[in-house]
């Protein structure tokens, strides 16, 4: 069996697609993320055929927009998640997703990071991975369920047989705990 590529290899592949439309690098991404994106689309509703089409659409976006990926701002999986999410919104709601534009003159940019924060940005994914593992199971389950099965809080409340208020407060707790572990208190 072929060894699964690790996150540094995946990051290098996405950069290679962005820099030079490297088809071999793209194939590595496709074989790694394609089945996961297909499963993600299927969990969020629709049949196999639609899930396959949405996966192909997502991978096409990745092929076309890879140059926009900036490893200093986030991990490969985070970037691919946002592409898949937006493809799904386009397909189901037939609307564009309102988003901010960092090149807009009225955009308020991030404060200049301190030198040690720049180093930290690259480690963000690892730290987050570590932080997620430390979440209490009921909070971790809720995030997992939200991200790839149900998407509305009320659907989750029904599914888990919890009051809506409890679902919302668990989401709040989960993210304030994550920020606490990551050391950026709100």
């Amino acid at each position: 069996t072929v060894k699964e590529p690790d996150k540094d290899e995946l990051s290098a592949c996405l950069l290679a697609v962005g820099a030079g439309k490297d088809i071999q690098a793209f194939e590595v991404l496709f074989r790694h993320f394609g089945p996961k994106i297909r499963a993600f689309m299927l969990k969020r509703g629709g049949n196999r055929q639609q899930a396959e089409e949405l996966m192909q659409e997502t991978m096409m976006m990745i092929w076309n927009k890879a140059a926009l990926f900036d490893p200093a701002r986030g991990s490969v999986s985070s970037w691919i998640f946002t592409v898949a999410r937006n493809v799904r919104i386009d397909a189901f709601r037939k609307t564009n997703r309102p988003e901010f534009d960092p090149n807009d003159p009225a955009f308020v940019p991030d404060p200049e990071p301190a030198a040690d924060d720049v180093y930290e940005a690259g480690q963000e994914a690892d730290r987050l991975r570590g932080a997620l593992v430390k979440l209490p199971p009921e909070q971790a389950d809720l995030l997992r369920l939200s991200f790839y099965e149900e998407i509305s809080h009320s659907a989750i409340a029904e599914r888990m047989n919890l009051p809506l208020g409890t679902v919302k407060s668990r989401i709040r707790l989960a993210f304030s705990r994550l920020r606490e572990i990551l050391g950026d208190a709100a």
Binding site: S75, I80, F81, D101, F107
Partner: peptide, 29 residues
């Protein structure tokens, strides 16, 4: 939400954490 995000670096940082958690959920499938 998106218009506030354009004005607010601290909410954008929180959004990035959430999207990274989404990426991990995708990776964990």
């Amino acid at each position: 939400v998106a218009t506030h995000l354009a004005l607010c670096p601290s909410c954008r940082k929180r959004l990035a954490t959430m999207e990274a958690a989404g990426g991990m959920a995708l990776e964990a499938i």
